[in-house]
């Protein structure tokens, strides 16, 4: 009775996470699981629209945006209550998105329509729609907010979009089925993962020229199973973690030499990753096994598996007291 009362009280506190949290979308359960980054337990599960995939907090952590792909909506949720505040006009089948550094514009990949939709989260209006290749998915934005990159899975390109004019300024061909685009924190490099090509291509942002290509190899794993998808820079920017999908491993890549340093075993069909706000742990969403692997950032060893919903896909962190 007291516990219930306490819990109720806590839930009513405005804008306060009790602990660092990792939010994970469950693609086939239409829910989001909230994991306590300290205890590594699921503390609550909220209902979302259909087929939630991309998830990101606003940069001030006041709301969380969720791509409810099959509901054709980007939902805006109050992270303290799980209440859906409103939907943003997202275009059809939003899969993934990225929020601009100014915390205002949201760039959304409309997978079925070959369009990148730019939405103003304050006015809730579509600012621009940009024709890109077939099945846009990977969404990256430069740290200065001047360049947005959309990758298209079936056209096999990274489309470089000028955020001032909302026009494509360059198209870079990459290997088959690019799934994710990630700018280095210093803005100098762009990393693009190609799922079916089995490679990661690194571009020099200034010249848009290819400066490196990373391939993967694991004993006893067929080369065609090494399918890079999600990517994440380490907090010190020296390493990049690359999720290898059905190879069930995370590759650890040197951000300067592009050498693969290590492979970490995780759950089945790993999609995306998120760091805990204190940078001590990395969380991976494992689609087929329906769980999240927690990796200790000091030892680079998996320390726990957390059961979530069916087909976890996206992940985003919220720090304590936000």
């Amino acid at each position: 009775m007291i516990r219930t009362l306490l819990l109720g009280t806590c839930l009513c506190l405005p804008y306060a996470a009790l602990a660092d949290e990792i939010w994970v979308t469950n693609e086939m359960d239409d829910t989001v699981s909230v994991i306590d980054a300290g205890t590594l337990e699921v503390v609550t599960t909220y209902a979302t629209g259909e087929r939630p995939r991309g998830i990101t907090f606003s940069r001030d952590f006041s709301v969380v945006y969720i791509c409810a792909s099959d509901s054709d909506a980007v939902q805006v949720m109050d992270p303290n209550t799980g209440e859906i505040l409103h939907d943003l006009p997202s275009g059809e089948d939003p899969e993934q998105f990225v929020i601009a550094p100014d915390d205002r514009l949201l760039y959304i990949a409309n997978e079925d329509d070959a369009i990148t939709t730019v939405v103003d989260t304050q006015t809730r209006r579509v600012v621009a729609q940009i024709d890109v290749g077939v099945e846009p998915e990977g969404m990256g934005i430069s740290p200065d907010g001047l360049l947005q990159v959309t990758t298209s899975e079936t056209t096999n390109m990274a489309h470089w979009i000028d955020t001032q004019t909302h026009e494509i300024v360059a198209n870079s061909l990459v290997d088959s089925r690019p799934r994710h685009a990630e700018f280095s924190p210093d803005g100098a490099d762009l990393w693009v993962s190609s799922e079916i090509g089995g490679t990661v291509t690194v571009f020099d942002v200034q010249t848009k020229a290819e400066k490196g290509k990373i391939r993967f190899a694991l004993p006893n794993v067929r080369p065609e199973k090494l399918q890079p998808v999600g990517m994440r820079f380490s907090p010190d920017e020296t390493k990049v973690f690359v999720a290898l999908g059905p190879a069930n491993h995370i590759a650890v890549v040197d951000a300067q030499t592009f050498e693969v340093l290590d492979y970490i075993l995780v759950g089945r069909r790993v999609w995306h990753m998120e760091l805990s706000p204190d940078n001590s742990k990395l969380f991976t969403t494992n689609g087929v096994s329906g769980d999240v692997t927690v990796i200790d950032m000091n030892s680079l060893k998996p320390i726990k598996t957390v059961k979530v919903g069916r087909f976890p896909w996206g992940a985003s962190a919220r720090p304590t007291n936000q």
């Binding site: 070959a114 290749g133 077939v134 079936t154 056209t155 489309h159 198209n171």
Partner: peptide, 10 residues
Amino acid sequence: ADISTTGKFT
């Protein structure tokens, strides 16, 4: 239709 979309860029 798929390859024509790609062709727009190439």
